[in-house]
Amino acid sequence: MTADEIAQVVQDGETMYAEFKSAAARPESLATTFISFLNTEGGVLWLGIEDDGTVSGVADVDAARQRVDQILANNITPRAAAFVEQVDAGGRRLLKITLSRGLDRPYYTQRGQCYVRQNSGKRLASREEIRRMYMAVRSFFFDESVLTGTGLADVDLPFFSAFLAAAYGVTEDTHRPEEELTRLLRNLKCMAGDELTVAGALLFGRQPQRMLPTARMEFARFEGTVAGETILDRKTIEGRLPQQLEQMESLLRLHLRDAGVIRGFEPELQAELPPEMLRESLTNALVHRDYSLSAPVRVILFEDRLEIHSPGQLPNGVTVDNVRAGIHVERNPIILSLMSKLGLMTRLGTGIVRIFRLAAERGLPEPALEERVAEFVVTLYRMPLPARSLEQ
């Protein structure tokens, strides 16, 4: 930005969409401003401009960036994100912190206070405003988001045609007119206007990671039972969601042992972890993850367990106990619907329940469910080594 542009920002003063803060502002002060923008229409916080418009600057930009990241992660519930950029202003450095309207409204402080914007400041939200935020958020899902610059040329048409045939009994036809293809994709909410949605790219895109770089899976196998320096294998898996699922299943089959059991008087080999249990766990991670976060699904294999890390905490109001009981909130309903039509899962919310049942039937330790910072982790425990006879 030019000096004149900065001068114009100062002259315009604090507004509904802009606020000034000293670089020495307390974390609580910054958090309440961030929250007010997230809960309303978004806005910009200028760090390094005093309330009276004096450009005081930011002495240590890197430290200030880290401070902002920590506030967004630790002082706001649910966790928020912002775009932070350095701006030079007449020899002084500022941070321009841009926040879009939050997808997980309402946002709260650590003390449970909810703020919204009002003219050039902020105020506590009323109970009715908080209720409306909940209602508005439930009507929007990230997998409906439009991916700017995409179009029909980004669709894998043979796969889409095969999907229509499998899901709806439509005759496969790779030469449909563009108008018909666009109409079908819109009806499935895989296209909005002439651009693909997140769901459309992940299910039918030719190169989904070109449009959504972190919508991938990362595999790592560590020696022992902790994440140490010795990595026995590491892979990045990309492609459409069904492709990612298939490739990860194949990779795990290579790394997991077969377990020996006795049927009658004859030894029999079984997969160490039931394939159905693996599929349910991996599919849940792909379908229910938060695609607004720039992070992949991580699958980590240790000597005693398999951990599946899905980006994003549980949606508002859902607890680990709810998930275990089969109660769920659909974070990505379009993706879920399409994966169901492909026969890769059901919409009944019984996946986690089935995982626990399969573990019990096989005599495996009970799986663990854990909500961590910005992710949900499912842990499947392997059989203790002495029980793994007849290994491959």
Rank of each mutant, 00 (worst) to 15 (best):
S145K: 07
A80K: 02
R372Q: 03
S139L: 10
R257Y: 12
V226I: 14
I327W: 03
T15Y: 13
R347M: 13
T54W: 13
I71T: 08
G169M: 00
L256A: 06
L152K: 07
G43E: 01
P267E: 08
M345D: 06
P275R: 11
D143L: 03
S161V: 10
Q247A: 12
F142M: 11
L342Q: 13
E178M: 00
Q70I: 01
P296S: 08
K235Q: 15
E303D: 13
V170G: 05
G312W: 15
Y168C: 10
F141Y: 14
G91L: 00
T150A: 01
P78Y: 11
L282M: 05
V297M: 09
A82Y: 01
G239S: 07
A285T: 06
Q11S: 06
Q243F: 04
N39G: 06
N75S: 07
D321G: 07
A259S: 09
D156P: 07
G351M: 03
R298I: 08
F376H: 08
V10S: 10
D4C: 03
R331C: 00
E172A: 12
K235L: 12
F204Y: 07
G102V: 04
D4N: 12
M211N: 03
G205H: 04
L348A: 14
R101F: 01
E246S: 13
E391H: 01
V58Q: 01
I355F: 03
M133Y: 02
R117Q: 04
F140W: 14
R131E: 12
D52A: 10
F83W: 07
I97F: 01
A3H: 15
S126T: 09
Q207L: 09
A7K: 07
R324F: 02
A7M: 04
G224W: 06
Q247P: 02
